[in-house]
Design a protein around this nucleic acid. Sequence first.
DNA 1: AATTAGCACTCTTGCTTTTTGAGTGCTAAA
DNA 2: TTTAGCACTCAAAAAGCAAGAGTGCTAATT
Lengths: 342, 342
Amino acid sequence: MSELSERKKLILSAVVEQYIKSGEPVGSKELIALTGMSVSSATVRNEMSELSSMGYLEQPHTSAGRIPSQKGYRYYVDNLMKDREIDELNRRMIEAGISSAAGDPERLIAQAGEVLAELTKCACVSTAPGGDTVIIRKIELVPVGIHSAMLVLLTSNGILKSRLCRLDCELTAKILEEFYNIVDSCIIGKPASDISVVSMQTAAASVDSDPFAMLPLMAAVCELARSMEDSRIILGGSSNLFSHKDYGVGAIELFEFLNKREPLSAVISGIKEPLDIIIGKENLYRQLENSSVIVAKYSVGGRDSGSIGLIGPTRMDYESIIPSVKYLTDIVGKMITQAIEE
Amino acid sequence: MSELSERKKLILSAVVEQYIKSGEPVGSKELIALTGMSVSSATVRNEMSELSSMGYLEQPHTSAGRIPSQKGYRYYVDNLMKDREIDELNRRMIEAGISSAAGDPERLIAQAGEVLAELTKCACVSTAPGGDTVIIRKIELVPVGIHSAMLVLLTSNGILKSRLCRLDCELTAKILEEFYNIVDSCIIGKPASDISVVSMQTAAASVDSDPFAMLPLMAAVCELARSMEDSRIILGGSSNLFSHKDYGVGAIELFEFLNKREPLSAVISGIKEPLDIIIGKENLYRQLENSSVIVAKYSVGGRDSGSIGLIGPTRMDYESIIPSVKYLTDIVGKMITQAIEE
DNA sequence: AATTAGCACTCTTGCTTTTTGAGTGCTAAA
DNA sequence: TTTAGCACTCAAAAAGCAAGAGTGCTAATT
């Protein structure tokens, strides 16, 4: 695939980088000034013309300069881009931004997303740690009055959810005991996704005392288990998209698409590589056709656990963004590993 | 102030309502068709001309119809608007939308905001219940491993926060006991806003055993108490603003303003009436100069506890929105009262 | 005194036309 | 293979034009 002449590579690379910087199509003269090549503009024009027919560049219209095509970006990302270290400044910003949330995995991921989004002016989509299966690790029910109690649920990946729940009848020691019986036998150690309303209802029904007393509690457990799943996708900094004039009014549609959450799951999760770049129409969703997605996985305790993805205009600064994403996933993985170890 | 002739009132009212509906300036002919008045367009023009010089109407340009000025809206809202009951449909939507979150005040408010925003196509800003002082009601620390525990904090207004925290040393029974001692003596019953890092540190230092063991726990308590305050402002449906062509690209600026959260606090809280309407430039913030805000308080157990506010274009449908806001604050207040009673 | 018909005037909106300028593609020479 | 030169294209900005909506004013009418 790399059958481009050195000069073509130089030109393609310069076009991509300049276009990323300025947002304007790049012309032959400008290109000479930029690269310092000692050939005439006509020569460059010939090269550009070839790059166009090969599909790496395209023209918005006849009398404009060239911009990279999707294939052009792809070639750039795969072959031309330098593999930089992260900026000192960005590193500091990341570290400062996430340190306060170190102890709590869910908040850490959320915070990390915000920081990365801020730094890159992109939207950040991430998944809370989880791997394939999230297991219920601990459930606690603390009475706070005659009729109500707080319910707390902790999973294997260190995510904690709590809510208040209210009973119709009195919360007796007996009910509490039976609740813990059910929890110990049917819930602890099970995957959160297995907790269904039906299974909880049957469990509630099997109880000695008034089964109706148990019902609201079981319903609350269900709800927390479900919210566990739902809240795995975390979106941050999506309003950054409005600052890119590339999108124009399309930013609104994209914004709304991102806020739907569900489709994002597919976008983020369907990757194999540790770091994946999806450019423009390579994306499955029409709504992302003018965007690129950079996703990286992070691993907790040596196993893939979640991923962090950035979404921004195709014309994004890949070269400086990628190192930040790499660094962030790296450090987040380490921090979570540390946070949930016994 | 009500020194307008009946005919002027009719005309002003019709202009406001029609402009709210169509978004186009209203002309003299249209006005006749609309109201069924039996006078000529010239007469109406004279009246409109007077209303203009009195400051109730204005013209986008010479050869356009009239639109209400801020003063015009104000007069309409104060004197002309009918005091409707809530639509049956809206009522149903609200009830259906919030019933699932009935038990948990914080979620209830969030959900109520979403529903109201959806219904009115405005952004909704609300404050979680709290009144003047939020008191720490219960704190629970549940060990989940040798080095970590989950911390749960409940306040008088029924808001529950939890997070995982991690100790550097082992979490012994002694530490746990000492923790509860501190909690019982220095934290329970105190306002959340009084919990400061300093006060916690001194508390931690007064302990028999290793004070450094206590530090991360106290820090976590602080953080939860602070997040209590911070999360009191809840924003919902802010992306609805993009659907109003009134704002144009200004929607983005407004959106970002709302997302800053802090200033909203002032907007929402600084009201005296049970229901307040702030129109256009009456708002303190420049960013809201093209918006109107409708805020209503809700009360829990007979005392003002929080408020729910809607933000939308000045040209919003006051007549139908106001009943919805009233109804919502009413029902939300009742539900929370029920949820937190013993 | 209030209303109305009539008319001139204004100003937006939408459309077409012109101009300008950047940048290309091609040809022919080096 | 490279380059100078030139005609050509096309978008974007500027300018011009016609139509239409709506007003304000004046003078006549009730």
